[in-house]
Design a protein around this nucleic acid. Sequence first.
DNA 1: TTACATTAAATGTATGTACATATATTTGCC
DNA 2: GGCAAATATATGTACATACATTTAATGTAA
Lengths: 152, 152
Amino acid sequence: MHPMKIEDEIKQPFFKDSFQKAYINLVFTAGWLGQRQAAVFRDYGITLPQFNILRILRGQHPKPATVNLLIERMLDKTSNASRIVDKLEAKQLVTRTTCPSNRRAVDICITEAGLQLLQQMDDAAVPQATGLQNLTPDEAAQLSALLDKIRD
Amino acid sequence: MHPMKIEDEIKQPFFKDSFQKAYINLVFTAGWLGQRQAAVFRDYGITLPQFNILRILRGQHPKPATVNLLIERMLDKTSNASRIVDKLEAKQLVTRTTCPSNRRAVDICITEAGLQLLQQMDDAAVPQATGLQNLTPDEAAQLSALLDKIRD
DNA sequence: TTACATTAAATGTATGTACATATATTTGCC
DNA sequence: GGCAAATATATGTACATACATTTAATGTAA
């Protein structure tokens, strides 16, 4: 199931124009990458969004983070950080305590177990498996530039 | 909330390398585009996956499609076509009848109302609103080539 | 023809997304 | 102080994803 042009992947012989083709390719490839990543994370008992939140928390450690800070730094701003933290708390990878200085807010901290899990994944070079290995550094930069331009 | 480099979007001042940056940019941009599309579809009472299935069914019309065929042509192969068809059936945009020649399979057809909805969206140039307007045709082709290479 | 594997679709369960709303706390203004 | 607006988080609901399991129909081989 290796090299495949996008036309073959979705069995659509042609596209209206290069814009439609690029769009479909973009959505498809993002899903493709996400699924590969998810498969790796599954071995560690967490999901990609959970991993991303853990990573943010490690960046703050030993300082706590609030839900607001997590949302700010997440890739998907509209997702529900609160419920992702629920799952991490259930796995005892993070702790939740109401912030003493502002009792509306919640201080979220990564636990020792959480840090160990991330370390274990680092050691296995999991985050490096982004799946863009087929590009040269130059091509990766080109890709970033094109994507930035889309959102301008 | 317009031009923003990816560093600003997720408030991460720098990336490990151009691969990590391109990866994060790719996932973020795909989500960004998806959200814009979803907002447009909402006006028509359907979601993006529902729209994609309707489009496939129109391509087959007046021949029916099976669930298997839908999965083959969908962008996300692992999603659950059966349940997306449920929603379309509830809105009477498609019909489901067991295939006479193979009673395991189900013949799915787009209804007149479904065709009219798509026509209405065509007229409003909804599918054209892919959001890649900022690229030149050349850049769109470049983007497609890079994405194909990622999956090689 | 019965028995077993294969195929097509549906269903179950956990997770996440998207958006609206609710609850509690704090802040600012009179 | 008291009250309205703003803020921080949580909850509700609909939809979709991801993957395992189930149900029914078909194919195949002893």
